[in-house]
Simulated scan of single mutants.
Amino acid sequence: MENTSEQSNIVLGDVEIVRVVEWRGAFAPAAELVPGVGAEVWRENARWLSPEHVDAASGAAVMALQSWVLRSGGRTVLVDTAVGNGRERPGSPAFHQWQGDYLGALARAGVRPQDVDVVVNTHLHADHVGWNTRNAQDSGGDWEPTFPNATYLIPAADDFHFGPRGAYGGGRSVDDRLVYEDSVAPVHRAGQAVLWEGSHRIDEHLTLEPAPGHTPGSCVLRLASGGDRAVFVGDLLHSPVQIVEPSCNSCFCLDARQAAVSRRRILGRAADLGELVVPAHFGGAGAVEVRRAGTGDRFRLGRWAAYGR
């Protein structure tokens, strides 16, 4: 995986949204990433999926590792923190000992670590919490919070599942333990972690709410400012083909049935309320409007946001 970085922004109401891309490119075979989608669906949608979301030559999904910076109510809110440098990730070869220019990308967006007031982890997978911390060379190489002045908002259900009382303690995944120990536990030790459940209001424009299935604590961040609406859906969507096939999950979803329920609910509300849908990993424009297609839980894509490449 070749490292790249870029940033671009739009404004919704009184909230500025800055897209910070650490890496973008062909990631994995699209048909394996979302295995429930039939070959005919990929063929029928190939024209608009390529080249922004599927590489036609290889069949690989084009994806991004990225964060979203929200400037809202005088504060800086960072949504997800990418992969993190120098991490032991033996179960995820693409992320193992990753070295990227994430902090440089943030700096080019005008954000220094000390400027961040709130960090939102939509869930606790490795590519969403890595830059929660960084290696403190002056303290013997321990991990410390990257954003010293920030409150880290962490879904309680994920903290339990991935922490020592859940998957980590159950020994089901080496990476679960490593991710928690280097990217989550240090935030707890620093007293900067806030666990939430039910819902959590960040400010007058921003609210967190559960959307479980991908992980037990997966959540979405809703934005409402003036007449503008958006919903940051994390890994509820890995490919835009899941908008037209909302019952199909990614291969990374832990509870397939619940993930599909959450996806249909969030897409339905986005279509009804005119919320711009902002997924974590889309490789193209990064955000899209959703429309209902007939009756029931059928959807189609509307306009893409003006981020572009």
Rank of each mutant, 00 (worst) to 15 (best):
D203I: 07
D203S: 08
D203W: 07
D203Y: 08
E204Q: 09
E204T: 07
H205D: 12
E209T: 15
E209A: 15
P210R: 06
A211T: 08
A211C: 08
P212W: 07
G213S: 06
H214K: 12
H214Q: 12
H214W: 13
T215R: 04
T215D: 09
P216S: 10
P216I: 11
C219E: 00
V220E: 00
L221P: 04
L221E: 06
R222E: 13
R222C: 08
L223V: 10
L223F: 07
L223T: 05
S225L: 13
S225G: 12
S225Q: 13
G227V: 07
A230V: 03
A230L: 02
V233I: 14
G234F: 02
L236A: 08
L236P: 00
L237E: 01
S239F: 01
Q242D: 10
Q242G: 05
Q242R: 08
I243A: 02
I243Y: 00
E245Y: 01
S247N: 06
C248D: 07
S250Y: 02
C251G: 04
C251T: 09
C253P: 01
D255R: 08
A256C: 11
A256E: 15
Q258K: 15
A259L: 05
R263F: 06
R264E: 15
I266H: 01
I266D: 02
L267E: 10
L267Q: 11
L267C: 11
G268H: 08
R269G: 13
A270P: 11
A270T: 13
A271S: 10
A271F: 08
A271K: 04
D272I: 12
L273Q: 12
L273A: 10
L273K: 10
L273H: 11
G274Q: 07
L276T: 09
L276I: 10
V277C: 05
V277D: 01
V277Q: 03
V278G: 05
V278N: 04
P279M: 06
P279E: 05
H281W: 00
H281S: 09
H281P: 00
F282C: 02
F282L: 03
G283Y: 01
A285T: 14
A285Y: 04
G286E: 01
G286W: 01
G286L: 03
G286R: 01
V290H: 00
R291N: 09
R291C: 09
A293K: 14
A293F: 13
A293W: 14
T295M: 15
G296F: 09
F299V: 11
F299M: 08
R300W: 04
L301S: 04
G302Y: 04
G302N: 12
R303K: 10
W304V: 01
